[in-house]
């Protein structure tokens, strides 16, 4: 490990949550505009987290605090791996660990909503993980390595040309990960859903704030990996990430929430098959 990698890693640790918070702020403002509203201030997510940090509330289960910290650490670790140019597959596995800890925390609570939320969270993982990883395989195949650095330096031609069919899959993953309609099944952003706040129902106060930070970190990772599709330069990558973000917000605002049965039976298999077809195409080429 050289010094640059170390600096990058530290940057990942600090920057990712900040960027994630900003993304969340932008998301809320743009959503409001799409709904013809003024919307909250850009920094609102930070205020929300700050507020939650200063709340005093009894935990729903004494295990929750532990799982929340583990989830946060895992999310940040995933960030660090990515920032330092590490293995993308492993980065995503670490992130899956984070999601697992969130689910475990929800399981250890006592409200039925939280348990159902945890189940759905797991079903979501079941759906997005393979799709996302197959997309990463596509990138790795085209770039010749699983490392973030390798993929980013894949060459002059954007990877997108070789993998148009993974886009629905990536959109699906982003929708699930950012908890957006039509796949905000386990917990939606505003809590107007049948599961109250689903997997987050039992978390409160500081625990909840930390989960929010972990979520920001997750979003940054996913957006970044999506931006590999046009990794011809930092600016292009930022643009791709922003475009992806906008598309996600747009989809959120033009669709109803689907059910997990639909997700498991239709949406996920369909996008997986597309992404897999792309992978096969890369191999047979």
């Amino acid at each position: 490990m050289n010094l640059t990698t170390f600096y990058l890693a530290v940057a990942g640790l600090i920057l990712a949550p900040l960027v994630g918070g900003l993304v969340s702020g932008v998301d809320r403002v743009v959503t409001a505009r799409l709904q013809s509203r003024l919307g909250p201030p850009l920094l609102q997510p930070f205020y929300d987290v700050g507020k939650l940090m200063s709340k005093i509330i009894a935990p729903a289960s004494h295990w929750q605090g532990m799982f929340v910290r583990w989830a946060l650490v895992a999310s940040l670790a995933a960030d660090v791996v990515l920032f330092a140019g590490g293995d993308v597959l492993m980065c995503f596995f670490i992130q899956a660990a984070s999601a697992s800890f969130v689910a475990m925390g929800a399981f250890s609570g006592s409200s039925p909503y939280s348990k159902l939320g945890a189940q759905r969270e797991l079903f979501q993982m079941l759906c997005y993980e393979p799709i996302f990883l197959v997309s990463v395989l596509c990138m790795a195949k085209a770039a010749g390595g699983f490392d973030a650095n390798t993929i980013m330096n894949a060459g002059a031609q954007p990877l997108l040309y070789k993998m148009p069919f993974i886009i629905p899959g990536l959109v699906f993953v982003l929708l699930v990960k950012m908890r957006k309609s039509p796949f905000d099944l386990s917990a939606c952003h505003h809590g107007h859903q049948e599961l109250v706040r689903g997997v987050f129902t039992d978390f409160a106060g500081r625990d909840f704030a930390l989960l929010e930070v972990a979520h920001w970190a997750d979003v940054v990772v996913i957006l970044w990996i999506c931006s590999f599709l046009w990794a011809t330069g930092p600016l292009q990558m930022v643009v791709v990430a922003l475009v992806a973000l906008f598309v996600i917000i747009l989809i959120d605002n033009v669709s109803a929430r689907l059910t997990w049965r639909h997700m498991v039976k239709v949406a996920a298999p369909l996008t997986f098959v597309l992404a897999f077809a792309n992978l096969m195409w890369l191999y047979l080429e």
């Binding site: 409001a32 709904q35 013809s36 509203r37 003024l38 909250p40 509330i57 505003h190 107007h192």
Partner: peptide
């Protein structure tokens, strides 16, 4: 809703007492 948009003040309707 849009005309009043209380989210301008950072207000969100959460529907869960713990939050």
């Amino acid at each position: 809703t849009p005309v009043y948009d209380i989210e301008r003040f950072g207000i969100v309707n959460v529907g869960n007492p713990r939050h």
